[in-house]
Structures are given as C-alpha cells and as structure tokens.
C-alpha cells in the first residue's frame, strides 16, 4: 500500500457547507447591490420597496423606479449572466480537459460582438440588436462546427483551432466595422459596447437575455454528472454508454445560448468563464456535480459585486469588461499559483 494513498486532498473539507455558504454570499451581494447606487435611497426603504413590489402597482416615485426598474433588473441580469458564464466556462474546461479554456475559444463571443457592433453601426437598437448579436454568435459556432468536421468526426484540437480561426475572422470584421464607423457617433458607441456593460439593463432586455441564459444554465447543470464522463478519452467514454461527440456538441450549443444571449445585451464580459471555475475547484474540488453549482453561485455573486462597483464608485460608468479583467487577472494569477503549488508539493 503506498504512502500517498492515505493522503486526502488538501482542500476545504467542509464541502457540504460550501454550497449553502455560496448561496448566502450571493443573496448578500444582491441585497447589497440593490441598496447601493448613486441616487441616495435609504437601504431599509429599498428593502421595503422590494418586498412590497409584487403587490404594489406600477412604480410611481423616483425611488421606486430606481430600485425596481433600474437596479433590480440590472442586478438580476448580472447574477444570471455571472452564473451562466461561470457554468459555461466550467463546462468547457471539463470537455476540453484544459483549465485555460474559456467561452471565447469557440468563437461565440467574437461572433456575437460582431452582430452587436453591426447593429450599432446600422442604428438598430432594442430587441433587433439582441437578435442580431445572438444570431451571429450561433453562426460563429456553426462555422466552427463545419470547419472542425473532418471525415465525419470532430476532434477537440480541431475544434479549438477552428474556434481560433473563426474568432479571428469575426474580430477582423469588428475592426472593419470600427473602420467605417462615424468617429463622432457610432464608433465610440461600438468601442464602449465592446468593453461590456450592464448599464442598459431594463426588464425588457432581461427578458430578451434570460431565456437563452436560463435554458443553457439549467441544462448544463443537469449535465453536471455527464461532464465528468465527457472528460474521459473516447474509448472509456464510449464503453460507459456515452456518445462523446454528440454530447460535446450539446454542451457547445448550450454555451452558445448562454454567451450569445449575454453578449447580445451587454457586450463582452470576459474572465468570468475562466477564473470562477478555478475558484470553484479550490472550494469544492473537480467533480462537476459539485463544481457547476458552486461556479454558478460564485460567478453570480462575483459579477453582481463587480457590476455594483462599476456603477457606484464614480459618477461615470466604468466598463465592466475592464473591471472584470482588472480584478480577474490577479485573482487568476493567485489561484493558479496556489493550485500548482498544491499539486507539485505532493
């Protein structure tokens, strides 16, 4: 019997506590977010309004409207997007067996970004813009699928390469749009939108993004056990009754639904899909059954907090993509070092 067999993994033993604590963290973050803002509203009043909302009529006063029509849909959207992006990232890292993978790798974000930028250039806004972004996100995924399909099969490596190619293509198209855009008008709008923001969140936009994100989220969570199997090699997976290729594409489509919907309403928000799953693994381990719910809760809380900072720290709206990068990059560096220090220390 080997010495290391008895060494239990050095992670938080209280796994069973992790999920309830994360849920509490999310609830706290959302409550904080709803009571914080540039417009001075007494926090207790805000809570009162929230509790009374389902029974009251349409919001009348400025306070009510700010809490219920500006903050509430925005916080919900941030939470939903954070959960969706984190779960999408965790699922992709599982399927690709690579911890450096993020939703960008499938080319969906650049595709959706192109759709949104095109809408801005053409002066299209609202539901049509969301639709355009979502459509191009899916088109990018389709292009990746067709490009990577060689001899009736798609290998993981070819999918990553195809994703790079399609992502680069749409990135170039976005640059082209910026080139022809009016420097006075649509160009700054496109640039700002690309940096990501929930500033335009309304109940209507939440309604446009929620179905895609929620559907992707729910189904990916239902696949959490299956994701353990999808990380096995082909022979092992097949012998266990799994159809790896088909199921991988199901995961990709769900990721596309989440990312496409999110980019369509709020531009490119990066780092969540990359960093949150790592933090989740440090808390609950690699088993996707625990990881996906943990990532969802952690991602939601993180994005709610960061978005609240983006809209309250200064009178300007700080672009969200900038904040997630500024916070995400060092956090990722720390996680990476801890993670590998653990592994190499054994």
């Amino acid at each position: 019997m080997s010495q290391t067999a008895l060494a239990l993994p050095r992670r938080w033993q209280g796994e069973a506590l992790a999920l309830p604590l994360l849920a509490a963290l999310l609830a706290g973050a959302m409550l904080l977010a709803l009571t914080a803002g540039r417009f001075p509203i007494d926090p207790l009043r805000a809570v009162e309004m929230l509790l009374a909302a389902p029974f009251a009529g349409a919001p009348e006063t400025m306070e009510e409207r700010i809490v219920l029509l500006v903050r509430l849909p925005r916080v919900l959207l941030a939470a939903l997007a954070g959960a969706g992006l984190a779960v999408a990232g965790a699922a992709l890292q599982g399927v690709f067996r690579n911890p450096l993978v993020a939703p960008q790798v499938l080319g969906i974000s650049p595709g959706a970004a192109f759709g949104g930028a095109l809408a801005i250039l053409l002066g299209i806004s609202g539901a049509l813009m969301v639709g355009l972004a979502f459509a191009f996100g899916l088109a990018a995924l389709l292009a990746v699928g067709l490009l990577a399909r060689i001899g009736g099969r798609t290998e993981i490596v070819t999918v990553i390469l195809a994703g790079l190619v399609i992502g680069a293509l749409f990135g170039a198209l976005v640059s082209l749009l910026q080139f022809v855009a009016d420097p006075n008008g649509s160009l700054p709008a496109i640039v700002y939108w690309l940096m990501g923001s929930f500033a335009s969140a309304t109940w209507e936009r939440l309604g446009l993004a929620a179905p895609g994100i929620a559907a992707g989220l729910v189904l990916l969570l239902a696949l959490r056990f299956r994701l353990n199997l999808l990380s096995l090699d082909e022979a092992e997976a097949r012998s266990l009754g799994v159809r790896p290729e088909r199921e991988r594409w199901l995961v990709f489509c769900l990721v596309a639904a989440i990312v496409g919907s999110q980019v369509a309403v709020s531009g490119i928000v990066g780092w969540i899909g990359l960093v949150i799953p790592h933090a989740g693994r440090l808390l609950v381990g690699h088993d996707h059954r625990a990881l996906l719910p943990a990532a969802a809760l952690l991602g939601a809380a993180f994005l709610v907090i960061v978005d609240t900072l983006a809209r309250t720290v200064t009178s300007a709206e700080i672009p969200l993509g900038v904040l997630t990068a500024i916070v995400g990059a060092p956090v990722f560096a720390v996680l990476l070092r801890r993670h590998y220090r653990e592994r190499f220390a054994s």
């Binding site: 599982g94 959490r224 056990f225 353990n228 199997l229 096995l232 009754g241 799994v242 199921e247 690699h286």
Partner: peptide, 27 residues
C-alpha cells in the same frame, strides 16, 4: 493508460461507471 484529465475523487471515478443507467441528464 490510467491517467485522468481531472483529479477526481476515487469514489467519483467509480461512480462514472453508473452512467449507462442514468441517461443524459441523470444524476
């Protein structure tokens, strides 16, 4: 080859064997 992509817990590895009876979305 006995290496796995992710450092799962042993019990979770063995649990994978139960996949066939669970269907796509089963836990």
């Amino acid at each position: 080859s006995v290496s796995l992509a992710h450092p799962y817990r042993v019990l979770d590895v063995v649990a994978m064997g139960r996949a066939a009876g669970l269907g796509l979305f089963g836990q």
